[in-house]
Simulated assay, not measured.
Amino acid sequence: MISADNLTELGETARKLENVARDTGPPKRQELDGLLSDLVSELREAHPEAEIDTGIPDSQTVFANEHLKPALYELGENAITHTEHEDGDPELEIRVHSDQDDWVVIEVADNGAGLPEMERNILDGQMESQLEHGQGLGLWFVYWTVVRSGGKLTVAVDEGTAIRVWLHSEDVPDDDLQWYLDLPAENDII
C-alpha cells in the first residue's frame, strides 16, 4: 500500500521528470566544485547517519542541463536510503574523475547489497513493462537528465553499487547536440 508521503514524493518526482522532458535547450557549462559541495551538505543534513566521503577537484566544469544537481541528489539519497549494511551506517562516496577525450566522470558509490537488476535496466534506458518495473521514477529522472545533458551512464555492482555519470567537459559538439536532445536510443548508454 502506498502511503500519503510516498504518493506526494512520487508526484514531485513526476513533475521533475516532466520538466526534464520539456527542457530542449542545450546543456550549459556548470562548475562542479560548488554544485557538489552544496549537494554533499544537503545530503549530510538530510542523512546525518551516513558517512559521506568526497573527492571533488577545485576547478572542474561540465556541460549539463539545469537538472544535474537534483539528479545527483537522487542518486546519493537512493544510495543512502537503500543501503542496509551489517557493519554499520551507510557509506557514500562521491568522486570526480577526468577521462581522456573531453569526459568528466562523477561517481556515486555505496556499500550496499547492490542495485537490483530491474533498477540497473532503468539506467540502461530499457523500458519497463506492467510485470517488470522499478520502485519509482527517480532513476528515470536521473537517466533523462544525463541523456538530455549529452552524457552517458554506467553502473558497476560489486561490493556495493557505483553509478558513473559521464558528462562533457567541453561544449557538446554541435553536430551531435540534436541527437542528445532526441529520445534516447540503446546506444546512449555505454
Score class of each variant (00 low, 15 high):
S3N: 07
S3L: 13
L7Y: 06
T8K: 13
L10W: 13
G11T: 09
T13M: 01
A14L: 12
R15Q: 15
R15N: 06
L17R: 05
L17C: 04
E18V: 09
A21K: 10
D23L: 10
D23F: 11
G25D: 12
R29G: 05
Q30M: 11
D33K: 15
G34H: 09
G34Q: 14
G34M: 08
L35C: 09
S37W: 08
S37E: 14
D38T: 11
S41G: 15
H47R: 14
E49K: 12
E51S: 15
T54P: 04
I56S: 00
P57E: 01
P57N: 02
D58T: 03
D58A: 13
S59E: 12
Q60G: 00
T61Q: 10
V62Y: 03
F63V: 00
E66L: 08
H67S: 11
H67R: 08
K69Y: 05
P70C: 07
P70H: 09
A71C: 09
Y73M: 15
E74M: 15
L75T: 08
L75I: 06
I80S: 07
I80G: 12
H82K: 03
H82I: 04
T83F: 04
T83V: 04
T83Y: 04
H85T: 08
E86M: 04
D87R: 10
D89G: 13
D89Y: 07
L92S: 12
E93G: 12
I94A: 05
R95C: 01
H97E: 10
H97W: 03
D99V: 08
W103R: 08
W103H: 09
V104T: 13
I106L: 04
E107T: 11
A109H: 10
D110C: 05
D110N: 15
N111C: 12
G112P: 05
G112K: 06
A113K: 14
G114E: 09
L115Q: 04
L115M: 15
P116K: 10
M118N: 13
R120Y: 03
R120L: 02
N121Y: 03
D124C: 14
G125F: 06
Q126K: 14
S129G: 15
E132S: 09
H133C: 01
H133N: 06
G134T: 05
G134C: 03
Q135L: 11
G136N: 08
W140F: 05
F141K: 09
V142F: 02
Y143F: 15
Y143T: 02
V147S: 02
V147P: 01
R148D: 01
K152M: 08
L153Q: 00
T154Q: 06
V157D: 14
D158N: 15
G160E: 11
G160P: 14
I163F: 05
I163Y: 09
V165L: 02
W166S: 01
L167W: 02
H168M: 01
S169F: 03
E170L: 11
P173V: 07
D175L: 06
L177C: 01
Q178I: 00
L181G: 01
L183N: 05
A185L: 10
A185K: 11
A185Y: 07
D188H: 11
D188Y: 02
I189R: 15
I189S: 10
I189T: 09
I190K: 10
